[in-house]
Structure formats: C-alpha cells, structure tokens
Amino acid sequence: MSPNEITEEELLQRVARGDSRAFDELYDRLSPRLYGLLRQMLHDERDAQDVLQDGFVQLWDHASSYDPSRAKAFTWAVMIFRNKAIDRMRALGRRTRLVEAASLEHATLGDGDSLPGADEDVQTRERAEIVRSALQQLPAEQRKLVELAFLKGLTHHTISETLDMPLGTVKTNIRRGLMRLRELLKGGRDGGAI
C-alpha cells in the first residue's frame, strides 16, 4: 500500500456510508485472502464462491457495525466469512463428514506460497509471514489443534472424538496455543511456558 492509499479500515467505513467504489476497492483487496481461506476450509471451489458472495453481501449490509477502534478491517471480515464457512460446513453435514478424514490431514495454515492469481501487497505478505512464524513457534500438538479448530470449525468434543484424544488435553492445548499466539502476534517474545 502506498502512503497515499486509503486503508482497509477507511474503505470499510466508506462502505458503511454506501460508497460502492469503496466496496469495489475493498473487495479487490480482501477477496484473495478471504477466498484462499474459504477454499482451504471448504475444499470446494463452488462452496467457497457461494460463501464469498454471501459474505460480501453481509459485509455491505453490516459495514455500519464495524468499529475501527476494536479490530482491523480484515480481522472483522474474517470473523464474518469464517462463521459463514462454518455454517456452510455444518449445513452440508454428511458431505463434509465424508471429506473430513481427508481434509483433516490437510488442515494446516501457512503451508505454502500464494497460488496463481493472487495479488498480495507487501504489508499483507509481511503480516502473513508473522502469523506463519508465530504458528511455527507452537508445539506441534498445539498447532495441529488450533489449525483444526480454526479451519474445520470443529468443536473440542468432535476433535477429541476424531483424534481419540482426551477432551481435557484438547482444551488445554487449544488454550495454551491460542494464548501463546496472542502474545506472539502482539509482538511478545517472552518465551514463557507454553
């Protein structure tokens, strides 16, 4: 983003006022990251496109509820799109379960470079590196559980059953992993117990 470029937060606030040009611009900036996320969550191009469409319509409708003092625009958008993807997975039910076994194996974050067609800016690439780096610092089990919960929208009970892991262990690892990520993404490198 050039210094003169409008931030995503400002664009979202303009969208809240009904600015369709701002919406177009925001779509161009957010959609590759959000579409990438949806593809990885849903493992289906068509489902990912449907959710992306519904998500942006909702973003247009509810942009006025965005509070820039509480979250970045991308963070706010991820909450919308991820919830929609989870709803989609739960609605698909059986089909999701059929691919679940296979998809669990691939439920990993930050496992490669951008795919063709993506247009990342420097800041996005840098932020992605920070998140990937933070994930790499987590113990393997914590990382695995956080990724499963994040990408698959599975409850701790389902994860416990699927992985044949005690429920308490699942919850503890998720708590520790997420608390550690929070510190790392805030810039903390205190090296405390994980």
């Binding site: 590759p32 990251r33 996320l37 979250a71 963070t75 991820v78 490669g112 067609g117 932020r127 994040f150």
Partner: peptide, 20 residues
Amino acid sequence: TELEATVAELAGAVAPFAPP
C-alpha cells in the same frame, strides 16, 4: 476480544487465491 482478533489473524497465514 484479543483472542478473537488472534484467531482472525490466522487467516493471514493462508495463501491468498484470486476468486473468479
């Protein structure tokens, strides 16, 4: 609130992909 933001940030680690 902070943990919600942390979770949302995880999306940044996913490789972007241009939609149709």
